[in-house]
């Protein structure tokens, strides 16, 4: 597994309201190596926008932006027994059926690493709460997409 951090930016503004509204926008995309089927990649883009929780005067409090790439190998070895006892077509079908689950597991590992990064980056300021993306990760876990 290999994590590449392409871009990380954290900006804080003057506003330090008692309650702030944090908008988390987390997008991921999957990729598969054209030649090596087991080589996978996940592209991630995370935008966190903090705003004062005030309808009349909605001002930014802080912004966090992360672009990262996570490269990993799909665990094809666990299907080797299946491959021996079944045809190539059945093996491919089995892989297609299960690869989504495998990718999902790696995605959660990746998101947790990004979460650690977000916590580390935003925990230095005593006057602001530490940010995290746990609610977003929980959604990925429970949705089973």
């Amino acid at each position: 597994m290999n994590l590449l951090l392409k871009e990380v930016a954290y900006n804080t503004f003057k506003q330090k309201p008692k309650t702030e509204n944090i908008e988390v926008d987390l997008s991921v995309k999957f990729g598969i190596d054209k030649e090596k089927f087991e080589e996978r990649v996940i592209f991630l883009e995370l935008n966190m926008d903090g705003n004062t929780d005030d309808d009349d005067n909605n001002e930014p409090t802080r912004k966090l932006f992360v672009v990262a790439i996570f490269q990993y190998k799909a665990p094809l070895s666990k299907y080797e027994d299946f491959k021996k006892n079944h045809s190539e077509k059945e093996y491919r079908e089995e892989l297609l059926e299960n690869q989504a689950q495998d990718d999902q597991e790696h995605l959660i590992v990746f998101l947790k690493r990004i979460n650690d990064l977000v916590i580390n980056m935003t925990s230095f300021d005593d006057n602001r709460t530490t940010l995290d993306i746990e609610p977003a990760i929980e959604m990925y876990e429970t949705e089973n997409v």
């Binding site: 988390v24 999957f30 990729g31 609610p135």
Partner: peptide
């Protein structure tokens, strides 16, 4: 890489105070 189109693209938007 063959990068996915919308089929396996996932987007989440969480808003919390």
């Amino acid at each position: 890489f063959l990068i996915s189109d919308h089929k396996i693209d996932k987007k989440t938007n969480v808003r919390f105070s």
